[in-house]
Design a protein around this nucleic acid. Structure first.
Lengths: 219, 219
DNA sequence: ATTATTATTTAGATTTACCTAAATATTATT
DNA sequence: AATAATATTTAGGTAAATCTAAATAATAAT
């Protein structure tokens, strides 16, 4: 299946909007893609023709299994390029999205797989989103919140969800960034807050709102 | 100046065909871009409007200084990506052209400069073609032929012009590839042949036809 | 210097991905 | 249930980058 850049962008946006919702509306998709509802209807017909989406007029849009497969390939490429830009070219995690948006449209499986290998087959990108493997499978990211008491206590920050500027500000102030190593001192069950310690700085406590946005791996 | 992918491809091809020739014909450009002469005429009018080419009907096409500047930026991106693919992702030098053809259209100066830095600001790509710097300047590649007797004799193969399959075959048979280190034993003025030696293998002689296609740097 | 050949341009269509405005369907409100 | 508000689709149009076929210009051959 050979998709145009535009078709790929639609597929990717449908994939994104489908999470949670059971189907994607014309208006939501138009807003997401910064286009007009009439254009979405046009494209919906074309993507239906190509069997990438299920679509009946006035009934909303869903990816077919093929469509989802295509979406995962695009997402894989996007997130791998984000990793490359941050890890190898020293871009900050805020500025990589636009560039990855362009690089993701270079459709070469060989390139994608070699890039993944070069990066050490990362499981999550710098925003904390999981990277699908060549088969389209991906794991849930491990957040600081999700780890159980029994698990490793010496951790490394792999990624941070960047939903809000306030969070990024807080993390910067506390000295938490990509690659930061930290120890979990204690977990408090009543509010799920966590006491952590970075190197030889004094320990401090972070709330669940914060810890659920910090992706880590044991080291 | 914001160029479409198509406009960039025209500019790049005009740049390529302009070498040697004093102006580029409609037919030659159509052939190079695998399109029809009528399409070239259309685009020529548009690029003239944008002041990137000098064009009068039936008079052929030339880049303006602006057009040349744009071309050098595209060439820079193309060749940097070729370096990346070969050096970092272990592609062979024959297979990188198509991929670089796509990657070159991601127009971000920051990305380009960071990529260049990441690669150690290479002066030539794996095909032996020089890479323009951020200002569009580029040096002539140093071939094995072009080095004078007085210059360093321990050399490293940086690139190989891949004009013919026969040459590549010959080089492979002789054990000459990217990164190969060699010593120049002697130069024979009457036919410009060169006696070289690789590691502890026996020395052998190569003709000027061969040596002028091998780009080297002193080490 | 005509004529033939080749190169180039023009005119008019086509495709993709958009758009606006109007029509129609769906959903929410009274 | 009727009406108002919102969502979606249809109809028809536009710009970019192509194309084919026909017309015209430039060059080569007699």
């Amino acid at each position: 299946m050979n998709l145009s850049v535009s078709e790929e962008n639609y597929i990717k946006s449908i994939y994104k909007l489908e999470e949670g919702q059971d189907s994607v509306t014309t208006n939501a998709l138009a807003y997401e893609l910064d286009t007009k509802p009439a254009s979405v209807t046009d494209m919906a017909k074309k993507l239906k023709e190509k069997k990438l989406i299920a679509y009946e007029k006035y009934q909303g849009i869903n990816l077919t299994p093929e469509g989802r497969k295509a979406a995962l390939q695009i997402v894989r490429r996007h997130r791998l390029w984000e990793c490359f830009l941050v890890e190898k070219l020293a871009f900050s995690w805020e500025e990589v999205h636009e560039l990855a948006e362009e690089l993701e449209h270079v459709r070469s499986e060989k390139l994608t797989n070699r890039l993944s290998e070069f990066l050490g087959n990362p499981a999550i990108d710098p925003h904390g989103d999981p990277i699908p493997d060549a088969q389209g499978k991906m794991g849930k990211p491990r957040t600081l919140t999700s780890l159980h008491k029994s698990q490793a206590k010496r951790l490394e920050v792999m990624a941070v969800s960047d939903k809000s500027a306030a969070l990024l500000e807080f993390l910067t102030a506390k000295g938490i960034r990509l690659g930061t190593q930290l120890d979990v001192i204690e977990r408090y069950a009543f509010d799920n807050s966590i006491e952590i310690k970075i190197r030889n700085q004094p320990a401090f406590t972070i709330s669940e709102q914060v810890s659920k946005n910090i992706m880590v791996k044991a080291i």
